[in-house]
Amino acid sequence: MKLEGIHQLDAPRERVYQCLVDPEVLQRCIPGCERLEKTGDNTFAATIRAGVGSIKGVFNGTARLEDLREPEHLRIVVDSKGAPGFLKGSGDLDLEHAENGTKVNYSGDVQVGGTIASVGQRMIQGTAKMMATQFFTSLNAEAGTQAGEPPPQHGFFRTALRWFSGWLRNIFRKH
């Protein structure tokens, strides 16, 4: 499935680029990203709890940054697997100077397999659109701060609350 879109960010191109190659920032921006660990030069191991509404799945996999041309272009290659199936693909991000910020053009190709491919046909495009929007919204907030500043608290409290309740539940289940 082809994906493409344009997002307008407020920060300058250099700052946006920095954010895009910073695993800590990426982890905060990728919807449902629970883990993003550097495993080598521009390669990462990731755990993403992806989904919409009550439909969720945990994906484990790798992400790789390629074709890095600061500050105008990079490619992200993802390969992940989870109980609902697999998800892999690559996307090119082109950053352009724009009035008051940066225009990001993205175009990619995503393949899904397993349950999500065979039952979620009418949702996949919408889900991808939504996740892209969430990602760029968070990225915009991140890029609005300076490197080294504390991260913005987009949805932080809700995430923390959920994490905490999940942790409590696990404790209770074990006993």
């Binding site: 009550s54 799945g57 349950t115 039952v119 979620g120 609350l161 959920r162 309740s165 539940r169």
Partner: peptide, 21 residues
């Protein structure tokens, strides 16, 4: 909060559960 879901008629939730989505 994270693990509980409201069930009403079940015509959306239960199919998703049967697929384990």
């Amino acid at each position: 909060l994270d693990g509980a879901k409201i069930l009403a008629g079940g015509h959306s939730l239960i199919p998703a559960m049967k697929l384990r989505l």
